[in-house]
């Protein structure tokens, strides 16, 4: 598609004009979900080393297009690429940080953590099959709650997003009829409900509409004090959304089971695991055209892995130590300069 090329060319032109301000800056583009933590890391990193990060949060789709056009040193995506695609393009993929997705509701007399849902019921609500709050399926999970006989107003994201990708991926795993009728992608054909733009749009619509349900990133629900629900996880246990349950999901995942660490963390086993945990990935070339830029980017990522307290401050979940070690090994074995030597030496 020629249009693509001209769009990308225009993007490159903009990047070329923007770049000279600080030639040594690391350039990246992609997912919006991790943007706040990347920005925070970048700010601290610049203060420490003088090397800045120019990250354009244009969406995962845009990030993939930009890295394939080689206008940036790294791309960032919420939906991992498949193994064959990584091999075909000569890309390395690794997870950078994680987050949780939580259902939020607006019901009189129901406080945060009061309501319990399971995956099948959540899928049925989003399919429009469970229509009222006092439906038998919800009552069964909440025998003591006072549930009104009002219609459930479903709210979903209208823009394509990694949050939707992970949310629908979870519904796919727990509900055959969801998989059959809707499926999983960054945006889907929603059977019911209203679409709102961004986490803030969903949060606002839920806050305004009595009897509504939506899904937002954990950081957003926590900072805005939204009424989140608990979930029944794959092990049949009821868990609350919190850093510990997200980390449990990450720890129970088999990170080497998919190429490029492309493990979707939804519906992970383990009694403590939160079922809607999500990672976000970085894409880089195995044989970069500019090895110096890639080296600077890898040093920044290594530094960021070592500063996980910053991530927790913003309610992101840092990658487990074992995963970080494995990723750094991958860097050493896979990402090479023109001389065939590894670009990344060791974490500073």
């Amino acid at each position: 598609m020629k249009l693509h090329h001209s769009l990308i060319a225009a993007g490159a032109l903009v990047a070329a004009f923007a770049a000279p301000a600080s030639a040594a800056d690391i350039s990246g583009a992609g997912a919006t979900f991790p943007y706040p933590i990347y920005a925070k890391w970048a700010d601290a990193y610049k203060n420490e080393t003088g090397v800045g990060l120019n990250y354009q949060s244009i969406g995962s789709g845009g990030g993939i297009k930009q890295i394939l056009a080689k206008t940036v040193t790294f791309g960032a995506t919420d939906a991992p690429l498949k193994g064959e695609q990584l091999d075909k393009e000569g890309l390395v993929q690794f997870p950078m940080v994680m987050g949780g997705i939580v259902p939020v509701v607006n019901l009189d007399g129901v406080a945060a953590g009061d309501l319990v849902l399971d995956g099948k019921t959540l899928a049925d609500i989003y399919l429009g099959e469970v229509k009222k709050w006092d439906d038998a399926a919800i009552k069964k999970l909440n025998p003591n709650a006072k549930l009104p006989s009002t219609a459930i107003a479903v709210v979903h994201r209208s823009d394509g997003s990694g949050t939707t990708f992970n949310f629908t991926n979870y519904l796919n795993k727990v509900s055959p009829s969801w998989k059959d009728k809707v499926g999983s992608a960054t945006s889907v054909e929603w059977p019911v409900g209203i679409g709102a733009k961004g986490n803030e749009g969903v949060a606002n619509n839920v806050a305004q509409t009595k009897g509504s349900i939506g899904y937002v990133e954990y950081a957003y629900a926590k900072q805005n004090k939204l009424t989140h629900t608990k979930m029944v996880n794959a092990a049949g246990k009821t868990v609350a959304p919190e850093i510990a349950s997200f980390q449990a999901a990450a720890a129970n995942a088999d990170w080497n089971s998919a190429p490029g660490y492309g493990v979707i963390l939804s519906n992970q086993p383990g009694a403590e695991s939160w079922p809607m945990t999500a990672a976000t990935w970085i894409l880089m070339y195995k044989q970069p055209t500019d090895p110096e830029a890639s080296k600077a980017a890898l040093q920044f990522f290594a530094w960021a892995y070592g500063h996980d307290a910053m991530a927790q401050d913003l309610d992101y979940i840092p990658m487990p130590k074992s995963v970080v070690e494995s990723v750094e090994k991958t860097w050493k074995s896979e990402i090479k300069g023109p001389d065939g030597k590894a670009i990344f030496a060791s974490a500073q």
Binding site: M1, H4, T32, I58, G59, S60, G61, G62, I64, A79, S158, D159, G160, S161, G162, A185, T186, S187, G195, K197
Partner: peptide, 13 residues
């Protein structure tokens, strides 16, 4: 809403 995350030629097109 959808242009940023549209993956694949057919979707964008």
């Amino acid at each position: 809403n959808e242009f940023t995350e549209a993956l694949g030629d057919l979707y964008t097109s």
